[in-house]
């Protein structure tokens, strides 16, 4: 077995990296894949609560790196999905406790036993971004359809290119279709035109995301929700499946559509 290492990052904070990492992990594991996720956000650990595994932490990433425990001892096994593991971040430790080469060594050990290693990265300009990106085979950039998030995404996509980890793939999170229909939110086409990267997923704004993180049950466990389906689709695209974007991901309104039909090439 040789895992693919996927790093989930962003330019701006709070756009949905941890949510995405947890849900992709759950979706891949539910599809029978062997998955380990690493919380790379040292000092601001969160992946544990989103996955609902916070009560079972004994050792963390820094304990492994500094040799206080074996790698296996720091891996928490999920009870819902047998092939899902978490390596939590240290909460109190200095961010400099881990280096990019530590992360490469650690993931190399994990590669042999897993199909996927997912890394939840801190936002782009923080220390810890380089740790998270160093071992990546592929980098997913999460953004929201807002000016500040798109701008910061552009910078981070450039940084990923210059670290030779590109091309990054984009997840557009928290799309509010009502606002898009009104013309008050950037469409996925707008964002793609601006950023010129490959899109791997569009996730709608969905109350179920917060409700499921309240319970520590990632929304992808419930594919009846729109966000859950969106994350399941991203997991399938990661596995190389050609999954069409969901119907609700269509952004054109009736007037645009009609005027395009009448005047082809227009608009």
């Amino acid at each position: 077995m040789s895992a693919t290492v996927v790093t989930v990052t962003s330019g701006k904070g709070g756009v949905g990296k941890t949510t995405t990492t947890a849900n992709l992990a759950v979706a891949l594991a539910a599809g029978g894949q062997k998955v380990v996720c690493i919380d790379g956000d040292i000092g601001l650990r969160n992946l544990d609560v989103i996955l609902g595994l916070e009560n079972r932490i004994v050792y963390d990433l820094v304990d492994v790196v500094e040799g206080r425990c074996r790698l296996k001892q720091a891996m928490i096994r999920d009870k819902r999905l047998q092939e899902l593991y978490l390596i939590p971040a240290a909460q109190t430790r200095d961010k400099n406790a881990v280096s990019p080469s530590d992360m490469v060594r650690l993931t190399d050990d994990l590669r042999e036993e897993f199909d996927w290693v997912l890394i939840d990265s801190p936002a782009g300009i923080e220390r810890g971004f380089r740790n998270s990106v160093a071992p990546a085979d592929t980098v997913l950039v999460v953004t929201n359809p807002e000016v500040s998030a798109v701008r910061d995404a552009d910078r981070i996509i450039g940084l990923i290119e210059s670290e030779e980890k590109g091309p990054a793939r984009l997840i557009l999170n928290r799309v509010n279709y009502e606002m898009v229909k009104r013309g008050d939110m950037l469409t996925s086409d707008d964002v793609l035109e601006l950023l010129a990267v490959e899109l791997i997923g569009i996730v709608p704004e969905d109350d179920h995301v917060i409700m499921s993180s309240n319970r520590g049950q990632p929304v992808a466990l419930d594919p009846k929700t729109r966000a859950g389906t969106a994350f399941q689709n991203i997991a399938r695209r990661l596995r190389g499946e050609d999954v069409p974007f969901m119907n609700l991901e269509v952004k054109e309104d009736i007037f645009q559509k009609l005027s395009r039909l009448i005047r082809p090439g227009g608009n």
Partner: peptide, 14 residues
């Protein structure tokens, strides 16, 4: 609408 303003401004900022 505000989305077109966002797009135009972002083009220049980028």
């Amino acid at each position: 609408k505000s989305a077109s303003a966002a797009k135009d401004r972002l083009k220049l900022v980028l």
